[in-house]
Every structure is written in structure tokens, then in C-alpha cells.
Amino acid sequence: MTHDPNGAPPGGVLERLTAALRADDPAGAEGARRGPPPVERWNPDYCGEIPMRIAADGTWHYNGTPIGRPALVKLFASILRRDPDGRTVLVTPVERVGIEVEDAAFLAVEMAVEGEGEGRSIAFRTNVDDVVPLDTDHPLRFERDGEGGFKPYLAVRHGLWALVSRALVYDLVDLCEEREVAGARWFGLAAGGRFHRIMPAAALS
């Protein structure tokens, strides 16, 4: 099978997905849309998996080859969701296909901060240019990494999460503090009207 030297995947199922989006939005799949695709309302039959993978570093691959066109990656990211069974799928009004996600669907690569304490506002930009505020609808969760540290993830949309890049982790740590919560000391981050608990303070020693 041959591949476009610019990183565009070959035809077939991806061509059908793109065509379905153009039919749904006459403005064009890679042009300006009236708004984000309403993937939460689309429930076509599941058509199986395709050889697409989102690597841990956020790179999208098709048949083992990186997709080098940012507009195409953003297109597919716009129709991505996580189904209740845990499967990550690309979905259009007529087709739903599963893909592999090594870690998180997105990366948070930029952060803007204003204010202090619970009144602090934080917003993130992802690698596909979603701008996501840290708030009740878009909380942080934390997981331990293999080195004993922690990996923050930000809720983005449709059950999908963004891994906060390592460079931003250091910026987040600078904003963290210890607080007593329900009788226990916690290390965490105050923002978006709440205290985001990361780990028990005792685990820092």
C-alpha cells in the first residue's frame, strides 16, 4: 500500500468519513464549520476498527505512518469520542469506527493563568487547538507515573482527556499547595472554584 508523502492517509474508510462530514456540513470538512460536529447525537452502527493510532506523544498514525497534515488531524479529532463501553471511535452520521489510543487522545501543550486561589482561572490549549478551561465540566485527574511522580489529565470533551505535557507539569507544581481536606493533608491545586487534590501530603516525603 502506498502513502502520500505529505502524510495524508490513503482512501477507503477515511475517505468515506471525510465525505460524510462534507455532506453534513457544506462548508467543507477542512474549511470553516458552523460549529463543532454534534458527535454526541450520531449513533450509526459500529463498523469495526481501522489501523489508526494516537501515539503517547500525540502523533496520529494511519497504517503505521504519521499523518503529516495538521488540518486532517484536526478534522479527525473533531469527530472523536469515547463510547460508554470504553472504545474510542471516529463517528459521522453514517459510520462509527474504532481507533487505538496509547495514552490520552490529546496533549495539553499551553497554559494561561490568571488570579489566585479558588478564584484562579486556568485555560489550556491542546495539540489540536482546543481551548479548554479548568472548571467543573473540565476537571483534572491525576495518575502515578512509572517514576513515582504524577501525570495530570484534563477532561476535554465527549469522554476524552488531554495529558498535560511534562513542561506544563512543572508550571502546575509551582501553583500547588498543601491543604487540609476532610481531616487529611493534601497536596493539590486551587483553581476553577475548587481544590484539585493530587496526592496525600505524606506521599511527598
Rank of each mutant, 00 (worst) to 15 (best):
D57N: 15
N63D: 14
L107C: 00
N43C: 03
A167K: 09
K151R: 11
L204M: 11
P133L: 06
A27T: 07
L189M: 04
P10Y: 07
L21I: 14
G58M: 09
E110K: 13
L160M: 10
A191R: 08
H196T: 07
G117C: 05
R194K: 03
L90P: 04
R87A: 14
A56R: 15
F142T: 08
E147W: 02
F195E: 12
N127A: 14
A184P: 00
G28K: 12
P66L: 09
V128H: 06
E49A: 14
L80H: 10
N43G: 01
L17M: 11
P44A: 03
E116N: 01
A20G: 08
L172R: 04
V109M: 14
D130N: 05
A191C: 08
R125C: 01
R41Y: 09
C47G: 09
F195V: 07
G68P: 04
R96V: 00
P9Q: 13
V109Q: 12
R197K: 15
G146F: 01
V156S: 05
H158A: 01
I54F: 02
V131G: 06
E110G: 04
G86R: 13
L189K: 01
A201D: 10
G68R: 13
E49V: 10
W186T: 05
T2R: 11
E114L: 13
G58D: 08
R34A: 10
F150A: 11
V164C: 06
T2D: 07
M1V: 13
V73G: 08
W60Y: 11
R197V: 10
E49P: 04
T65K: 15
G58Y: 06
L14Y: 03
L175S: 06
F124I: 04
V97D: 04
G148F: 08
R144G: 08
D25R: 15
W186S: 07
Y170L: 15
I99Q: 09
R141C: 00
E110S: 15
R120F: 00
P36R: 10
A155D: 02
V39W: 01
A162L: 13
I122C: 08
S121M: 10
V91W: 04
H196I: 04
R197G: 09
L140A: 04
F142S: 06
E110M: 10
A27C: 05
A201L: 14
P5A: 03
L14G: 09
G35M: 13
M111L: 08
R69Y: 00
G64L: 05
R194F: 04
S205R: 14
S78H: 05
A123N: 12
